[in-house]
Design a protein around this nucleic acid. Structure first.
Lengths: 206, 206
DNA sequence: CTTCCCCCTGTCCGTTCGGACAGGTCCATC
DNA sequence: GATGGACCTGTCCGAACGGACAGGGGGAAG
């Protein structure tokens, strides 16, 4: 009997998961929450074997929630079930300790397979996700990680501000703004600021 | 007894909706489909009173599916239940004939309310959605609709192409490209191409 | 203490943008 | 046949952009 905690802010999805998991005699849902904050005390008190976690949550971010949940109950194995499939999200979740990653749209049998896999000490990545992870380890890591300052600059660029305006806003020189933008373009592989905004947007960096 | 057809490509959401709707004695689910193509014959054969429709579907787009479903069974009232809340999606769905619009995250009672409302000949818009619709009718129409050509140009801009490159790609003059871009900036209310890309991206125009 | 990373600054220069002026054709609707 | 929308083109010009050169300071980790 695998004890499961469901964390999803959509009532429909949450109730659907609870109902269908309960149908399977090898699973029992010991708790359901709509936010990471609500899930933490449940993880402590209910001692679930597996936590099914959505990444898009109100309040605390899903990625941050993973270590917090594991800290609350170290035996728990976390399986992500979300609509997001950007590299940042996927790799962030894996690095934070998720043992499974499913995309919404996954069939019920696949969810069951993933739960069994991680409960048995293994891991389960949906094929599309597995591909991303493999690409990450095989490629020496194309620096997609922008520094805090670079993200600040990029957000202002996306807001339509000119270099001069950004300089004023951040209290730095226009020259420094140009420097940051050059770095951003290199890291993202963009030709100019417009493409940088497009790439950042589709990778969820804004 | 309100007859309902559920259309959603996520098995979890679909099953969750079916299960919880069936719990309510005033509803009966007469069919469930994962795509518009599968839903059309069901709409014809099952004659549902209300169709719960997700907008993100494989194959035929959800917005296009609305008139098709209504054509298949004119008595049906369509309620949208989706994660998208961009102006384009919302207004597109309403214009296409949707009578209700709910966001994923809506509670089960709210979904029930919406179904009863549209079945009674009324309509039901979640408050956030209602705000968008009101803004649309009150404001004399801020032209958010880009022409085909403008979208073409904007996509190339987002791809990092310069005006000269766009001109070559579209076999027009660089001057004409500038003309289109000026129009795009005005329509989107952007200061420059970078912001235009950001706005277009978050409104789902790319 | 050295190394590495993030952050900052400077000059020079060719290219690109975007606004403001003004004009044309094609096509569907009325 | 007129009207309006989408699409196209032209010149001029100041401002903005992005690359290339080269350099300094502070904090964290080894």
């Amino acid at each position: 009997m695998i004890r499961i905690l469901v964390v999803d802010d959509h009532p429909v999805v949450r109730e659907g998961l609870v109902a269908t998991l309960e149908d399977d005699p090898e699973f029992t849902v010991v708790g359901a929450a709509g936010s990471a904050e609500d899930a933490l005390p449940l993880a402590r008190s209910q001692q679930p074997d597996v936590i099914l976690l959505d990444l898009e949550l109100p309040g605390m971010d899903g990625i941050q929630a993973i270590p917090a949940l594991v800290a609350a109950h170290p035996e728990a194995r976390v399986v992500i079930l979300t609509a997001y499939d950007t590299d940042e999200r996927v790799l962030g979740a894996i690095r934070s300790g998720a043992k499974g990653y499913l995309l919404k749209g996954a069939g019920l049998e696949e969810i069951a397979r993933a739960i069994r896999a991680v409960h048995g000490g293994g891991s389960y990545l949906e094929s599309r996700i597995a591909g991303k992870v493999l690409a990450e380890v095989s490629a020496p890591r194309r620096a997609t990680t922008l520094t805090r300052r670079e993200r600040e600059v990029l957000k202002l660029v996306a807001g339509g501000r000119s270099n001069k305006q950004i300089a004023r806003a951040l209290k730095i020189t226009e020259r420094t703004v140009k420097f940051h933008i050059t770095t951003i373009l290199n890291k993202l592989g963009a030709e100019n600021r417009a493409q940088a905004v497009a790439l950042a947007s589709q990778r969820g960096l804004l």
